[in-house]
């Protein structure tokens, strides 16, 4: 079964990687002192925690992206029967690409592919 293969290699690598981190941490027992924990900012110390309501500059792009991607998920099964279905499938592809192109053109015109 395909999943067995995926899980065997995933499990092996993840376990190995975690083990390596753990063993190396045990080999060096110096404690991380408080002054060492200050985030690096060229020598300066921050006033506050860095975790913030982080201002994503591409929020509109992500929304367009989700719809775009959902549309594309239809294309995988379509690709399998493409040769068998022939011209009908080709027309279908035209439809797909037209929809996606309109989406891109609209987003581009509204300037969402830039940092807001």
């Amino acid at each position: 079964m395909a999943l067995t293969g995926l899980f065997t290699i995933m499990g092996t690598i993840v376990a190995g990687a975690l083990l390596l981190q753990w063993v190396a941490a045990r080999a060096r027992r110096d404690r991380v002192v408080e002054s060492q924990k200050i985030p690096f900012l060229g020598g300066s110390a921050p006033q506050t925690h860095a975790w913030q309501r982080f201002h994503v500059r591409y929020y509109s792009m992500t929304l367009l992206f989700i719809a775009f991607e959902m549309e594309m998920m239809f294309m995988y099964p379509w690709a399998v029967v493409y040769v068998a279905e022939g011209v009908k499938a080709l027309a279908e592809m035209g439809m797909f690409l037209a929809i996606l192109t309109v989406g891109i053109l609209y987003g581009w015109r509204e300037g969402i592919f830039r940092w807001q």
């Binding site: 929020y59 509109s60 929304l63 367009l64 719809a67 775009f68 989406g103 609209y106 987003g107 509204e110 300037g111 969402i112 830039r114 807001q116």
Partner: peptide
Amino acid sequence: MVASVILSSRS
């Protein structure tokens, strides 16, 4: 796609 751009984009 169009609606999400209209609703979210300021520019």
